[in-house]
Amino acid sequence: MKTDKVTQQKIIRDVLISLVLYALPVILMLLSFKITGQRPWKKTATTTVNKNA
């Protein structure tokens, strides 16, 4: 038993739309960084050294 041709075509079309949807939040995030000038990946963990110890 096979999937009918119309369903197959809809699946292919919707998979292509899905690729855009998957990428959308990542693209919007990068766009927001570009607009605001934020560079959160450059933040490194800072260690405070207590010199009095």
Partner: peptide, 8 residues
């Protein structure tokens, strides 16, 4: 942003 990426 993490929330949106994972939800989608």
């Amino acid at each position: 942003w993490g929330f949106a990426i994972i939800a989608v």
